[in-house]
Amino acid sequence: MSRENNSASAQSNLPETSSPVERQIRIGSGITKNNKKPYTKSFWKRASKQKALLLMSIPFVIWLLVFKYIPIAGWVMAFQDYKPQFGFFEQEWVGWKHFKDLFNEPMFYTALENTLGMGILGLVFGTVSAIVFALLLNELRFLTLKKWTQTISYLPHFVSWVIVANIVITMLSQEGIFNNILVGLGIIDQPINYMAKPEMFWGIVTLSDVWKETGWNAIIYLAAMAGVDPQLYEAAKVDGASRIRQMWHITLPSIRAVIIVLLILNIGNLINIGFEKQMLLGNNIVMEKALVIDLYALDYGIGMFRYSFGTAIGIFKSVISVILILICNSVAKRIGEGRVF
């Protein structure tokens, strides 16, 4: 209930932005405000006026319940010693045992720290690089180059981590191109074995990720920019705004909603960074910085057939994610910066 209240009041509290047209768009979107009848009106009365909308959503609600929520019944495994030959409700119940085991394990905290560390770095650099890249691409005059850059920059997304990790390790090896350049330029006098430096590991993972995914991640922002009204730019040009000012004052605010939504979703996913790149780039020297929760879950959960333990880890991750997303969503709504739901 209060959700709609918030969004309505948020819209009237919009921060003033420089562009008049921008403002006009925002005010225009106040349709909901006009449509919104007092909440005292009964649910059924409102529903009866939205038959088309209901028809368009109920099949998918059913789909969600069947395909996404029924399997959640599997979570009971975390409180059992699951043996696959029996059904989910014919198992031996062990209460919170697996959670206790998890929280008593020092390795888990190392993994949690690394996961969050690399998650946050990835989130910050991944988001910034994709937005900056999309902004710059959008400004590119040379149209053929623009098309080619766009197409080529997303190629690494399709290259598996196995191959990317191989290339990265080779480039950073002692006889690799990176050391050759730095030694050649006299910046360092001895080649450095980067992959053997635990303090560099997070950085290497983050940069590899940026290299691989920036072009792909930028696609969404490019699509959002395609929706910006060209008249805004015309107006700005008349005002004599520079290109960088236009980027800052027109393009960015126009895609702000998309940025915020993706940011919120990605914060929710902070803990779900997978393990592939860490496993492939990592080695025994840097393992203390490379162990992440998903790798821990694989090696000590499913890899050992400890389904119950694996499920307990999964539930822990889900709880963290849901808490994060609820916080972010309500913060975003409170400051009037969009919402996820």
Partner: peptide, 30 residues
């Protein structure tokens, strides 16, 4: 589209139902 309609009666419910599926999963066996 139904979720973009803030006046839609099921908006909040469906939205939450949907978003949660991003972060929860029953696992392979279920």
């Amino acid at each position: 589209y139904t979720l973009s309609r803030k006046d839609f009666v099921l908006n909040g419910f469906v939205g939450l139902l949907l978003v949660l599926t991003m972060f929860i999963s029953g696992g392979l066996i279920p």
